[in-house]
């Protein structure tokens, strides 16, 4: 099978995965409207994830490297991790939350069709162990913080839901992001001679890290608890700025 054929298979796999996730959203909405009990909507989500596995393997094969170096792979990775989050927290999430997270993941996956699918070999700076340690951890943190924001939005709208789940997800996200920042810092020192540069993506990463680190204290501050949920919703916007804003609309070295 030549590279052109494999590239076509990649598009087919991604399309089928998104169709499957879409089916999950539709079944989930049906569950939400009809208040049925079982999480049937997660079966198409599982299928969607299964379809993404060969997608990543083929991309890795075609570029002989970890498959999250360009915008196609970055958006697909976020899509993949959001779907995983919807499965991990299936018992804690309401149908509305689950559908929202799958839908956001699906949007990230669908955005991939806006970009060129050409396979480019990674730059020499990406050839390091710090790269696969740094990137997936930060994506995991983004996904968890998005999920925390979705729970925040739900509590704001309905008043229902355990607010401590937000803290728990935010804390795991903070742990992952801290590790990602440490690995990224070590990489930066070896590759660019500095663990921190005045680069938009790095600044916004620091902003996110400080913001979510600070938010871990809010449960113990009675006078600020009323702004906890709006701030977690605001966090989603900050993640979008960090992930998309600095990646497309800035002079960042991290730009896509």
């Amino acid at each position: 099978m030549n590279k052109m054929e494999l590239s076509s298979i990649l598009k087919i796999l991604l399309t089928l995965s998104i169709i499957s996730a879409n089916a999950g959203v539709i079944v989930g909405l049906h569950k939400l409207i009809h208040k049925s009990g079982k999480n049937f909507h997660l079966y198409p989500v599982m299928l969607s994830l299964v379809l993404l596995v060969p997608f990543f393997f083929i991309r890795a094969y075609l570029k002989s490297y970890f498959p999250f170096t360009d915008k196609v792979e970055s958006f697909t990775t976020l899509y993949f991790i959001l779907l995983i989050i919807s499965l991990i927290y299936r018992r804690e999430f309401s149908a509305g939350e689950s559908v929202s997270i799958i839908f956001l993941g699906m949007l990230s996956g669908a955005a991939v069709f806006l970009f060129s699918h050409s396979i480019r070999y990674p730059s020499p700076y990406l050839k390091t162990i710090w790269f696969p340690l740094h990137v997936p951890l930060s994506f995991g943190a983004y996904a968890l913080w998005i999920a925390a924001g979705v729970r925040g939005a739900r509590i704001m709208v309905t008043g229902a839901g355990d607010t401590m789940l937000i803290t728990s997800m935010a804390r795991i996200g903070f742990i992952l992001f801290s590790l990602s920042m440490i690995f990224g810092g070590i990489w930066g020192y070896f590759a660019w001679g500095a663990y921190f540069l005045w680069d938009p993506k790095l600044i916004w990463s620091v902003i996110l890290w400080i913001f979510y680190g600070n938010m871990l204290h809010i449960d113990t501050l009675a006078s600020f608890r009323h702004v906890k949920h709006p701030l977690y919703v605001l966090g989603i916007i900050m993640i979008l700025i960090t992930f998309i804003g600095t990646g497309f609309f800035s002079q960042s070295i991290h730009r896509f």
């Binding site: 355990d162 804390r171 590790l179 440490i182």
Partner: peptide, 22 residues
């Protein structure tokens, strides 16, 4: 790293889900 280790241990506590209306 040590701080993250202790932070990670915090998450061993059980979460009591308050599932809202479906």
């Amino acid at each position: 790293f040590f701080g993250i280790y202790f932070m990670f241990r915090l998450n061993n506590r059980p979460i009591s889900p308050e599932k809202g209306p479906y």
